[in-house]
């Protein structure tokens, strides 16, 4: 059983899962990093984009990679409304109020989706040919998902590292008061960051629709993995999100194949527990 092809296949499966985890965790980490707000509704942005791509394909035959792009402006509209109505008011609020507000939003979006489209499990019936590399089979859509994920990461690296607004985002995340004193309009940075997170999660939603089920509470299941990732990587750290996603995705896949599929569902719990007990600032976080 411990053959090379099983190992290779398992790692590829893990990376494919990690690419989805990254999409939700990046949104969580960006928003938390800049605003110190934990957005429990991040997964619902993903769910709505997943449904968007699903229906565009099912009803009008729109290629999901096209609708992935179309979901970005749609998610920005929704994200801006949510930012104005809810998130903006949570800055500096108690943790419990933040949780209640964003959790309420999550439940509301799930409820709307369930009312409109029922709780049925659906799949976006779109396939690409698989690739064979040696004895490892690479599912087409998963390979493209990994590619999309790399593209998102490259965009994010460029945006944060090479643009003025990106530098302001990093500065605001690093020291909000310092950024204000440098003349940064931190509220604009907040909105930009929130919308960036929303757009990334929307792209992730289409990726999700291509490999998972689409159903109203799909985001709620994923947000938990997102938490495991950002806790593992250190709240608010982008590099931490990348490594955390890979560690979680590959560990889950390994446990699934070599230990037990029942235990693989517990990996995320175990990660959260171990990190919080042994290194609360995460792998990449610095103690604040």
């Amino acid at each position: 059983m411990l053959s090379f092809e099983v190992l290779g296949q398992t790692i590829v499966n893990g990376i494919a899962a990690a690419s989805i985890y990254m999409m939700i965790s990046l949104g969580l980490a960006l928003v938390f990093g800049v605003m110190r707000v934990v957005n429990l509704a991040q997964g619902e942005f993903m769910m709505l984009a997943a449904f968007g791509s699903f229906w565009l394909f099912t009803l009008y035959g729109v290629d999901p990679y096209l609708s992935m792009v179309a979901m970005i402006p749609a998610s920005l509209l929704l994200g801006y409304a949510v930012y104005r109505l809810i998130i903006r008011r949570l800055l500096g609020a108690d943790d419990i109020n933040q949780f209640l507000a964003t959790f309420g939003l999550a439940l509301m979006l799930q409820g709307i989706a369930q009312y409109l489209w029922s709780a049925d499990l659906r799949r976006l019936p779109y396939v690409l040919p698989s690739l064979e590399v040696g004895d490892v089979t690479l599912a087409g859509v998963r390979v493209v998902n990994i590619g999309v994920c790399l593209a998102v990461l490259a965009f994010l690296a460029w945006f944060l590292g090479w643009t003025g607004i990106g530098r302001s985002v990093r500065a605001t995340a690093s020291n909000r008061m310092g950024a204000m004193l440098c003349g940064v309009d931190v509220r604009r940075v907040d909105a930009t960051t929130f919308l960036l997170g929303t757009a990334i999660s929307a792209v992730g939603g289409t990726m999700l629709a291509l490999v998972y089920f689409v159903y109203p509470s799909v985001g709620a299941g994923l947000i938990f993995k997102g938490f495991a990732v950002v806790i593992l990587g250190g709240m608010g750290s982008i590099a931490g999100v990348i490594v955390g996603s890979l560690v979680l995705g590959i560990t889950e896949a390994m446990v699934n194949v070599y230990v037990s599929s029942q235990l693989s569902a517990l990996v995320a719990f175990a990660v959260i527990f171990i990190v919080l007990v042994s290194r609360p600032q995460g792998l990449f976080g610095t103690a604040r």
Binding site: N13, A16, Y212, A253, N256, S264
Partner: peptide, 8 residues
């Protein structure tokens, strides 16, 4: 939603 481990 994912049986890839079992199927592998």
């Amino acid at each position: 939603p994912d049986m890839s481990g079992q199927l592998t």
